[in-house]
Simulated assay, not measured.
Amino acid sequence: MEILDHLDKLKIFIAVAQRGSISAASQELALTQPAITRAIQTLENAAGYPLFTRNRSGMQLTQGGQILFETAGRVLKEVSDATLRGAHVRTEMAGTFTIGTYESLAEYLWPDFLLKVQKDYPLINLSIRTDSQRSHLEELNNGTLDLLVDAEPRHRQNLAMWPLYTDRFSFYATKAATELNPETAKNLTLLYVRNAFDEDNVTIESHLKSAGYQFQQEYTFDSFTTVKRMAEKGLGIAVLPQRLADKEGKLKLIKAKGFKEGFGHHGIFATVSPHRENDRRIKTVVNLLRKQLS
């Protein structure tokens, strides 16, 4: 008995590895916890070594489990993709695609893009997943994701990256105001993502401090989408990527002393694993993204 005899259980193995617990995988897959436990035990018996270490904090992959994890997602994904492509052998743009991204970008890019793909390439089964950057990179490496689209990725060894477009940060609010400056800022509330950074790895917080800005009150969030929603409610002045802020036209650009045309170049990139770099379908999707963002 070997792993190849139990390919149907790899989906369970991947869910446990990603979620870190039997209970979380049980909820995701709508299976009982004993059923998941039996599946993992069967895979471990077939492999001949433990796939997980079990402790109070949950289930963690062993070194052997990590090797299987890096391959398992790709195997299942490619089988699903091949099945769809095999049913439509006369067209190149057929198959399953999963793209990882982040919430703020998802709001203003993906709705129009998905409509475009559905119209022009109906045989592409495209899905979008928002998650943490760490989870996305794991899924890209194990083949669960075909493509990752995110902002200012740091150097990623052994991964191919293509620039899609460059944005900048600016100040926005629901009402037009006189020019913002360090003096007037002392009486205002700021909404921003503190640790967001530009192509030079300079955070928004560092840009503001360098220009002498100190606001009366600051609210910090993990998502630009949350910042935008708070600003639309009139809760303060927001620092946002220009394209996100301009999407619906509800917020007005605030001119700020020291930041004439905005600040901090903020690049959006498409990242793919090396074995998919020359896939024509991947290149077509990336070119569609560029056109959508141009």
Rank of each mutant, 00 (worst) to 15 (best):
267 G>S: 13
241 P>A: 00
240 L>C: 10
256 A>L: 12
263 F>E: 03
236 G>K: 08
236 G>L: 10
241 P>R: 00
232 E>R: 09
234 G>R: 12
237 I>K: 03
247 K>H: 15
232 E>A: 05
247 K>Q: 10
257 K>F: 14
249 G>T: 01
259 F>C: 02
258 G>S: 01
267 G>C: 09
267 G>W: 11
239 V>I: 13
245 A>S: 06
237 I>A: 02
234 G>T: 08
234 G>M: 14
233 K>L: 15
260 K>R: 06
245 A>N: 05
259 F>L: 02
240 L>E: 06
260 K>D: 05
235 L>R: 13
239 V>A: 05
247 K>L: 06
253 L>P: 10
235 L>G: 02
235 L>M: 13
234 G>D: 12
256 A>R: 10
261 E>Q: 10
239 V>R: 03
251 L>I: 00
230 M>E: 09
245 A>G: 08
255 K>Y: 11
254 I>W: 11
261 E>W: 09
262 G>L: 05
244 L>W: 12
256 A>P: 13
239 V>C: 14
232 E>H: 10
238 A>R: 08
237 I>N: 02
233 K>D: 11
243 R>S: 06
249 G>N: 06
250 K>F: 15
243 R>Q: 07
247 K>R: 11
241 P>N: 01
255 K>R: 14
245 A>V: 00
231 A>F: 15
230 M>I: 00
237 I>E: 02
253 L>F: 13
234 G>Y: 14
237 I>W: 04
239 V>T: 03
236 G>P: 15
252 K>S: 12
260 K>Y: 07
242 Q>A: 01
267 G>V: 00
233 K>I: 04
266 H>L: 14
254 I>Y: 10
242 Q>D: 01
233 K>H: 12
235 L>Y: 11
264 G>F: 12
237 I>M: 04
235 L>I: 01
260 K>V: 01
248 E>F: 14
256 A>Y: 12
235 L>E: 07
264 G>A: 04
260 K>L: 02
264 G>V: 00
243 R>E: 03
267 G>P: 14
255 K>H: 13
233 K>P: 13
253 L>C: 07
254 I>A: 03
258 G>D: 00
243 R>H: 11
261 E>G: 05
255 K>G: 08
249 G>K: 07
